[in-house]
């Protein structure tokens, strides 16, 4: 185990170093998703014919996934609450529940995509579908990354170690949730 430098434990800004870094990470993610969504939005407004393509998306699958992510966010914040109370085991259990949510999200997503690809809507089927797979794909990559990190954090939390990380991964997870909150109306409801 690496000995942490003194620098890591200082906090001239009044905020713990890890949390500060997570917030900067989120700021950098905002501009990545912002680039995709701003591009999508201006194309979508300039191309009324994309509405026809959008009408083939499955609102119920999108809504179910929103529900799954909202619930996983709840368990992530409950994990944080448990960690604040020093109960690492409970925090780890909530984190595993969140990971379960991530898996459910991905399973629903893969059924949905399999169905759509089966109908012939692929990346090459025109502007809407390109953006649809691009935006949801980048988001799904973040879900996978978040789930992997969460398993790692939970493994430490179970032994009551590095409990502050439970909050950090939670903040990241809520951000992934917020991105989906915007993707849902943009890709599924606007028809």
């Amino acid at each position: 185990m690496m000995v942490k430098p003194l620098a890591t434990n200082r906090s001239s800004s009044g905020m713990s170093t890890g949390k500060l870094a997570v917030w900067w990470l989120i700021a950098s993610e905002i501009v990545i998703f912002g680039g995709v969504l701003a591009s999508y939005l201006m194309f979508r407004l300039g191309h009324p014919e994309w509405g026809a393509a959008a009408s083939h998306t499955n609102t119920w699958a999108g809504a179910l996934n929103t529900m799954v992510l909202l619930t996983s966010s709840l368990s992530a914040v409950l994990a944080h609450q448990a960690a604040e109370q020093g109960d690492g085991k409970k925090a780890a259990r909530f984190l595993y529940f969140t990971v379960l949510g991530a898996l459910m999200f991905l399973v629903i997503k893969s059924f949905e995509w399999t169905h759509e690809i089966g109908l012939g809507f692929t990346l090459q089927s025109g502007g809407f579908w390109s953006f649809y797979y691009l935006a949801a794909g980048i988001h799904a990559a973040h879900v996978i990354a978040g789930a992997i990190i969460m398993i790692w954090v939970a493994a430490y939390a179970k032994r009551n170690e590095e409990l502050q990380r439970v909050e950090y991964i939670g903040i990241y997870w809520h951000f992934v949730d917020i991105v989906w909150i915007f993707l849902f109306p943009l890709l599924y409801i606007a028809k």
């Binding site: 950098s28 905002i30 501009v31 990545i32 912002g34 990346l123 090459q124 691009l134």
Partner: peptide
């Protein structure tokens, strides 16, 4: 750097898709 590079990261993915997967961004 952090506040400006995001859209290009997105753009790089889009261009890579155009090159290799035949999208039309």
């Amino acid at each position: 750097f952090m506040a400006s590079v995001g859209p290009l990261v997105a753009g790089a993915i889009m261009l890579l898709f155009d090159q290799q997967l035949g999208t039309a961004f």
